[in-house]
Every structure is written in structure tokens, then in C-alpha cells.
Computed example of a mutant assay.
Amino acid sequence: MSSTELPPVPATNVLPKVSPVRGEDGERLRSVRLSGVTLAVRSRPSGREGLPPALYVHGLGGSSQNWSALMPLLDGLVDGEAVDLPGFGDSPPPDDGDYSVTGHARAVIRYLDAAERGPVHLFGNSLGGAVATRVAAVRPDLVRTLSLVSPALPEVFVQRGAIPTGLLAVPGVASLFTRYTKDWTAEQRVRGVMALCYGDPGRVTPEGFRNAVEEMERRLRLPYFWDAMARSARGIVNAYTLGGQHGLWRQAERVLAPTLLVYGGRDQLVSFRTARRAARSFRDSRLLTLPDAGHVAMMEYPDQVAAAFRQLLEATGESGIADTGS
């Protein structure tokens, strides 16, 4: 069986544990033990009973908190949860050390199978967009709609800002970078990340910056932080080079779910030029372009992303839930 095939895995030993959450008011964080992996899952109180489920998947180096600006705006539309991928946020590394796109996709599938929440409205950003694309392609029964924000899909000419990610995938580079940057403060690192990921870093509030610094300080203390980053970066590079029916663009063509694509005109990591190719590849797609947004439009322009998702629901006739927020 190909390494990209994701057979259903019986998910047992689901042990939810509620713990204090660092993030927006009303959010909860619980730990869910599955076969071979433990995932931290962030959720909010449902706006009302009977809402369809949604799952949000973050990008490389991110966490479930990346969706904390968007999730409240969709409270009346979906029953939302955001997952920390293995090795990121509050999720420990996977037992098998598999940080490939397929490995992350398998973790998402295991959770959805265990929670019996499918089909869900599936959201993904960057690496999470590649993961969500693979999930939607191989397990269409789990995906109701697909919303991708700057998905990490293969490019012939990569953005200059994405070159460090590619270098990080080279064995030994992560350890060299760690030594080179050992004197950098958490504030310096966060400013660098925000300059790379935001179209306008000035949109970050002082509170948001402080929270990001605290989170960076916490992650740098984790013994597996750089390993998770390097191996996941390697997973993206490997996915970019995979051809045939298991290539990400070929899998995009197999996605049956109605798809919302969101691209930022100031994205330094995923080329704005790929937006048109993505719109052609996903068979039932809608494209939202935000000229001033960077790589994380759901954090910079959550209102516009929420409005586009509402339009997706209206266009696809998803019961009448879109009317609840109008």
C-alpha cells in the first residue's frame, strides 16, 4: 500500500481531559488519546444545539490558537473545534515520529473517526491546507465542505520567503539554526514570524503580541520543538515532490466537497499566482482574494473569511444554518 493511502484506523482509548486554556475567553482545551497519537483539541461553547461540526487545522509552527479570531465569528453556524497537530501547540510528538503530510492527515482522520463528528466543515491553513486536501481526497465521507487559507500546494517557483522552510527540511540545518539563533529573544523571533506571515504586522494588537511571545517562550522550552518543525518542513518538501495519483494537485482534483479558497496578495510563503490554478483544480470551488492579506488571512481578516464561508454555505444549501447569522 502506498504511504499516502490512509485506511480507516479503529480509534480506541479516547480519553478527553479538560485543562486550562491559554487563549480567548470561552475556549476549552482537552487532550484526546488515540492510537499512536495524543491530540490537544480546542473548542468553544456551541452557539445553539444541532449545529454541524467543523474542524480547523493550523499550519507549520502554528497551533489551534491560530483560529481563535475566526472561530467566534462562526459560533452560530458550526460547532467548531481546532486541533493541535502532533508536535505542535499542546500536542506531544506522534509515537512513530511521522511528521509527513500523510502522518498529520492520518492523525486528523483518526480523531474524526474516534469522535464520530464527520462529515465536518474542514478548514486548513498552509501545511494544514495540504493536510485538509489529503483528508478530503482520501476520505470524502468525513468532509462536508473544505475551506483552505493559503494552502501549501506544490509550486514550480517557490516564494522567496518560503526558502528558509525548505532549508529547514535539510538534515542538520535545524541544529545549526538553533545554535546560530540561541541568543535571539522570544520577542525577536515573534517579530520575525509576524513580518513573514502577516501582510501588515501592525494589525497585531499589543495583547496579541504578548500572547504570541508567551507561547513562543513555552515552545522553545519543549525538547522536541525544533525536531517537529524540521520534520514537518521535510514532510511538506516531500509532498511537493510526490507525483502521480498521490500528488497534492492530483488529490485536489479528486476532492468532492464544495471548496472555499482564500489567498492573500501579500503572502510571502504561498504565491498568490497559485490561486487561479487552485480554483481550476478543485472541481467545486469559490475563490476569495484579499490583496492586503498575508499568509494567515483568518487571523488578519477574520470577518471577510467568515463572510465568505457563510456565502459558501448559502450557495451549497447547507440546511438553513447560514440564515442564523444574518
Results as ranks from 00 to 15, higher is better:
57 V>S: 09
74 L>S: 05
184 W>I: 08
264 G>W: 08
87 G>W: 09
145 T>P: 04
194 M>R: 13
284 D>W: 11
257 A>G: 08
211 N>W: 08
297 A>W: 03
214 E>K: 14
37 V>F: 11
292 D>K: 09
50 G>D: 10
188 Q>D: 04
117 R>Q: 13
90 D>A: 13
234 R>T: 11
104 H>V: 06
54 A>D: 04
49 E>S: 14
35 S>T: 15
293 A>I: 10
257 A>V: 09
214 E>W: 12
112 L>A: 08
202 G>M: 10
212 A>W: 06
93 P>Q: 07
195 A>N: 15
151 P>C: 12
239 A>P: 05
168 L>R: 03
123 F>K: 00
128 G>S: 11
179 R>Q: 08
99 Y>T: 09
82 A>N: 06
71 M>A: 14
280 R>Q: 11
49 E>V: 14
304 Q>G: 01
36 G>E: 12
27 E>S: 13
178 T>H: 15
162 A>P: 00
242 L>T: 15
153 L>K: 03
258 P>Y: 03
135 V>I: 09
144 R>P: 05
107 A>K: 00
105 A>Y: 07
301 Y>G: 05
69 A>C: 00
35 S>P: 04
50 G>H: 07
31 S>K: 09
46 S>H: 12
199 G>I: 09
229 M>A: 00
12 T>N: 10
173 V>K: 01
228 A>F: 01
87 G>K: 04
160 R>L: 15
125 N>T: 07
160 R>W: 13
245 Q>C: 02
38 T>G: 06
48 R>L: 04
59 G>N: 10
154 P>W: 00
18 V>N: 11
276 R>C: 05
157 F>V: 15
298 M>T: 06
20 P>K: 04
94 P>S: 15
192 G>D: 10
68 S>N: 14
316 T>F: 03
168 L>T: 01
246 H>I: 05
134 R>D: 01
153 L>C: 01
5 E>F: 11
120 V>H: 02
161 G>H: 07
323 D>W: 03
315 A>T: 12
205 T>G: 00
68 S>F: 13
117 R>A: 12
265 G>Q: 07
131 V>N: 02
61 G>K: 08
174 A>V: 12
275 A>F: 10
293 A>D: 02
319 S>F: 04
231 R>N: 15
55 L>K: 05
307 A>R: 13
66 N>K: 04
